[in-house]
C-alpha cells in the first residue's frame, strides 16, 4: 500500500466555483436550490386550493400574481436558475456515479434505504419533464384543448377533464412526493445541519410535507375527474 503523495497546485477558483467543482459543494448548491423550489411548490399548492373557492377567486389570484411584471420576471428568473443549477448538479453527480462504479454488483440488497432515496434522479427527471408539459399546458397553452389567457379556472378544467391530462398530473405529483420524501430530509445533511438527535424529526418533517404536497396538488385533478370542480 502506497501512501506517498506529491502536492500539486490546483488551479485557482472563486469560492462559488470551488463549491461547484466539488461533490460536497454541488450537493450544498442542490440543497439551497432545493429549498427555493420547495418553498415555490408549497406556495403554489396553497394557491391552487383556491380552485375550490370558485372560478372568480382563482382567476383573481392569477391576475394578482401578474400585477407587477418586474416581480413576475424576477421570480421566474430565480426559479429558472434554481431549476437549472439543481438539475445540472444532479445530472453531473449521477454521471460521476456511473464512473465511480463502472462494474455493478451481481447481487445488491439495500438494507435500510428507501425506494425514494435510490430513485432521486428518475423522480427528478420526471418532474422536469412534467414542468415542461405543465408550462405548455397552462402558461403558454399550446397543449391545452381550449386555452384562453387569464381564464385559469376554465383552462385547468379543460386540461384535467381529459383522462390523459389528469393522469399526467397525478403521476407527476406522486413523483414529486417521492422526490420530496427524500430531498427534504437529505438537504439538511447536505448543508451540514443534521445530527443524530434531530434526524428523526427531519425525517418526519420530510415525510409530512411530501404527503401534504402530493395530496394538496392531487386534490385539483381528482376534484375535476370526480366532477366536484367543473
Amino acid at each position: 500500500m502506497s501512501t506517498s503523495v506529491s502536492p500539486v497546485s490546483a488551479p485557482r477558483a472563486t469560492r462559488l466555483g470551488a463549491l461547484w467543482n466539488s461533490a460536497v459543494g454541488k450537493k450544498a448548491l442542490m440543497a439551497v436550490t432545493g429549498i427555493v423550489l420547495f418553498l415555490f411548490v408549497l406556495v403554489h399548492m396553497i394557491g391552487n386550493l383556491q380552485v375550490f373557492q370558485g372560478a372568480a377567486k382563482i382567476n383573481h389570484y392569477a391576475e394578482l400574481l401578474r400585477i407587477s411584471p418586474p416581480f413576475l420576471w424576477f421570480t421566474r428568473i430565480v426559479l429558472l436558475v434554481a431549476v437549472f443549477v439543481h438539475a445540472l448538479a444532479g445530472i453531473e453527480l449521477w454521471m460521476e456515479r456511473q464512473r465511480a462504479r463502472p462494474v455493478g454488483y451481481q447481487d445488491y440488497r439495500p438494507v435500510v434505504s428507501s425506494t425514494a432515496s435510490r430513485t432521486m434522479i428518475w423522480s427528478g427527471l420526471l418532474i422536469l419533464l412534467f414542468v415542461v408539459y405543465h408550462l405548455l399546458d397552462l402558461t403558454i397553452g399550446v397543449v391545452n384543448p381550449r386555452f384562453e389567457h387569464g381564464q385559469v379556472y376554465a383552462n385547468l378544467v379543460a386540461s384535467l377533464s381529459r383522462a390523459v391530462g389528469a393522469a399526467i398530473y397525478l403521476v407527476a405529483m406522486i413523483g414529486l412526493g417521492f422526490h420530496l420524501w427524500h430531498g427534504l430530509y437529505s438537504m439538511f445533511q447536505s448543508l451540514g445541519l443534521s445530527n443524530r438527535g434531530i434526524s428523526p424529526t427531519i425525517q418526519k418533517f420530510a415525510i409530512g410535507f411530501a404527503v401534504l404536497l402530493t395530496l394538496g396538488f392531487s386534490a385539483v385533478p381528482l376534484a375535476v375527474i370526480l366532477g366536484l370542480v367543473g
Binding site: 453527480l93 432515496s117 432521486m120 445541519l193
Partner: peptide, 26 residues
C-alpha cells in the same frame, strides 16, 4: 462518488459510525 444520504453505509458499518459524521464534514 457523492453522498445522497440514503444511509446504507451506516447500516452496514461494522464500527457503528453514525451518518452525522457526513453532515459534520459537509
Amino acid at each position: 462518488g457523492h453522498c445522497t444520504t440514503i444511509g446504507e453505509c451506516e447500516a452496514v458499518c461494522p464500527a457503528g459510525i453514525k451518518l452525522e459524521v457526513i453532515s459534520r464534514m459537509n
